[in-house]
Amino acid sequence: MIRVLLADDEAMIRSALAALLRLEDDIDVVAECADGQQAVEEALRLQPDVCLLDLEMPHLDGVQVAERLKRTPATRCIIVTRHARPGVLRRALESGVAGFLPKSRGADEVAAVIRRIAAGARYVDPEIAADALSDERSPLTARELDVLRAGRRGETSEQIARTLSLAPGTVRNHVSAVLAKLAVDSRQQATLLAEERGWL
């Protein structure tokens, strides 16, 4: 049996997919989680073969969950998302995610991907892969992206500086560079643009 943990903050989607996967002879849904933090805790406790993770969840997103489970090599992660932005795919693959597919796929296709991932293969939806090949790369440095990430909820330069162990002036310099590179007027606009492009 392939032991699967399912994490999605939309209860109806989560329970419907769990019910459909339980109809498969070789798949056992061992946990259903409503947010990323719960998914990490349950995955560490239960050590499932595969974690099927929604990309956008409260507390931790699917990629952040996968990053935290990297030290659990027996568990492999698949990201499912409604908005499959190519930049997010790159971030997911860098985090050790083994599979990536859109939510538009049927339960039988999801089950087939679960089997492939459990057998040690990787899977990326062909349409997403094609988009990723043609997508522009981020012009921002890793540190500039860190600054945007740390200020996602409107934190001040001083708060970002403390989070990243930087001087506030250094943070302001990074923000100025980001605004110039992205041709936007505010850090909030820069963050939204970076999220839309899948760089964050």
Score class of each variant (00 low, 15 high):
176 S>Q: 13
8 D>C: 06
193 L>V: 02
155 E>G: 03
26 D>G: 01
123 Y>M: 08
68 R>K: 15
8 D>L: 03
40 V>S: 06
17 L>E: 05
137 R>Y: 00
18 A>Y: 05
123 Y>V: 09
50 V>M: 05
18 A>E: 01
101 L>H: 01
64 Q>P: 03
190 A>C: 03
62 G>Q: 07
56 E>N: 14
157 S>L: 07
117 I>D: 02
144 E>L: 05
200 L>Q: 05
60 L>N: 05
8 D>Y: 07
179 L>H: 07
6 L>W: 10
196 E>T: 12
120 G>V: 12
167 A>V: 07
55 L>H: 14
45 R>Q: 14
106 G>N: 11
113 V>E: 08
97 V>Q: 09
159 Q>K: 14
87 G>Y: 10
149 R>W: 10
59 H>M: 10
150 A>T: 08
194 A>L: 04
5 L>N: 09
63 V>Y: 02
58 P>Y: 08
97 V>H: 05
53 L>V: 05
18 A>H: 07
45 R>K: 15
45 R>H: 13
106 G>Q: 13
82 R>H: 09
128 I>A: 15
52 L>Y: 10
38 Q>L: 12
10 E>W: 09
18 A>T: 06
20 L>V: 01
68 R>V: 00
69 L>F: 11
89 L>S: 06
56 E>C: 08
43 A>Y: 04
117 I>F: 08
34 A>K: 14
116 R>V: 01
175 V>Y: 01
158 E>S: 12
8 D>K: 12
24 E>P: 09
51 C>M: 11
70 K>W: 11
198 G>W: 11
127 E>C: 00
54 D>Y: 11
7 A>D: 07
154 G>V: 02
31 A>R: 09
61 D>H: 08
109 E>C: 01
58 P>M: 04
104 S>P: 00
43 A>K: 06
174 H>C: 06
5 L>V: 13
11 A>Y: 11
25 D>I: 00
94 E>T: 07
63 V>R: 02
194 A>V: 09
177 A>G: 14
99 G>V: 07
59 H>Q: 15
120 G>S: 11
81 T>N: 04
124 V>D: 08
166 L>K: 08
21 L>V: 10
40 V>I: 15
193 L>I: 04
12 M>N: 09
76 R>L: 09
32 E>V: 10
106 G>R: 14
126 P>A: 10
105 R>S: 04
155 E>D: 08
189 Q>D: 14
22 R>A: 14
112 A>P: 01
110 V>S: 01
135 D>R: 06
151 G>V: 07
73 P>E: 05
77 C>T: 11
30 V>G: 04
96 G>D: 11
155 E>A: 10
150 A>L: 07
184 V>R: 09
25 D>M: 00
78 I>D: 03
189 Q>F: 00
199 W>T: 06
138 S>V: 06
152 R>G: 11
48 P>F: 10
146 D>C: 02
44 L>E: 13
192 L>I: 00
187 R>V: 12
162 R>T: 12
178 V>C: 05
196 E>S: 13
